[in-house]
Simulated scan of single mutants.
Amino acid sequence: MTAAQADLQIDRPMVADGAALWRIARDSEALDLNSSYSYLLWCRDFAATSAVARDERGEPVGFVTGYVRPDRPGTLLVWQVAVDSAHRGRGLAAALLDGLALRTAAERGLTAVETTITPGNTASERLFTSFAERHGARVEREVLFDAGQFPDGPHDPEVLYRIGPLSLTPSA
């Protein structure tokens, strides 16, 4: 953890955090914004596979949401990662992702991480390729959903990043 992260606490989200996560996602201007209801449900039903960063007042300033794939119990699918604009550029997204991966590995035997990234999202590409490097894993990429599969208008394809096998240790 860097000095800029020292005043932050990373833990599991609570239902009370759902509205803040929705606002952080909305304000990111990069994520597909889900309904506010979905963030409330996510904080309730997937708290064990998600993480939130809190400032000194306990307010959420960043999050990563994920779930363990039912057909691949050693794989964590990372759904969204977002950091409040006032806290960007400090390595918080990487700290959230590392912390969640370590916790999930300890609790569920995590061996791989998956996520989808739209072409041109260089911040996410850097986040996940550097995650793979830190944990001695390779990255495989393939289009998971092409643009034509989205029924609600123009949407970039979603490229699946499969990262593994992971070498996760508490010092990571």
Rank of each mutant, 00 (worst) to 15 (best):
L102D: 03
R23W: 11
D45Y: 15
L8I: 05
A25P: 00
I163K: 14
L41Q: 11
P154T: 10
D11N: 13
L40W: 11
F46S: 13
D146L: 08
L144Y: 11
D32L: 14
F150M: 09
G91A: 13
S130G: 09
L168Y: 04
Y161Q: 02
D11P: 02
R134C: 04
T104A: 12
A48E: 12
R54S: 08
Y67G: 04
A112S: 09
A105E: 08
G109D: 06
S28I: 01
R54V: 03
D17L: 07
R57D: 12
L110K: 04
F150S: 10
A53N: 03
P13S: 14
P157M: 06
S130C: 04
S28C: 04
R126Y: 08
R26G: 02
D27T: 08
D156C: 09
T129L: 05
A93S: 14
L21V: 02
M1Y: 13
T116N: 01
R57Y: 06
A82C: 04
I24N: 01
G120I: 05
L21A: 12
L127R: 04
L77C: 10
A82D: 07
Q80T: 00
V159W: 08
P73H: 11
F128G: 02
V139E: 08
S50M: 03
A94H: 05
T111G: 13
V83D: 03
L102K: 15
V68A: 09
E107A: 15
I163Q: 15
T129G: 08
L127I: 03
G109R: 12
R103L: 02
I163G: 11
T2W: 05
L96R: 01
S35N: 06
D7W: 00
L41M: 09
D71M: 11
T75E: 12
F145L: 14
S50N: 05
D156Q: 14
G136K: 07
T2Y: 02
A147F: 10
E158K: 09
D156T: 02
L100D: 02
A6H: 09
P119T: 07
Q149S: 15
H135D: 02
G99H: 07
A20Q: 13
L102M: 14
S28G: 01
S171I: 08
T75Y: 08
M14Y: 12
L168C: 07
H135A: 04
C43G: 11
V68C: 07
N34E: 06
S124A: 15
M14A: 15
L8F: 10
D11H: 11
A123R: 11
G74I: 00
C43W: 08
Q5P: 01
T122L: 14
G109C: 05
V68P: 00
D156F: 00
A105T: 12
F145C: 06
L8A: 06
D45S: 13
R108C: 04
L102N: 06
T104E: 02
V78K: 06
A101C: 10
G99I: 01
A4S: 10
S50W: 07
L100S: 07
N121T: 05
R90Q: 15
A123S: 14
L21D: 03
A82M: 04
D98L: 12
I117P: 00
E59N: 12
W22C: 06
E29F: 03
P13A: 14
W79R: 14
A53H: 04
I24L: 05
R69T: 01
E158G: 04
P154A: 14
R88K: 13
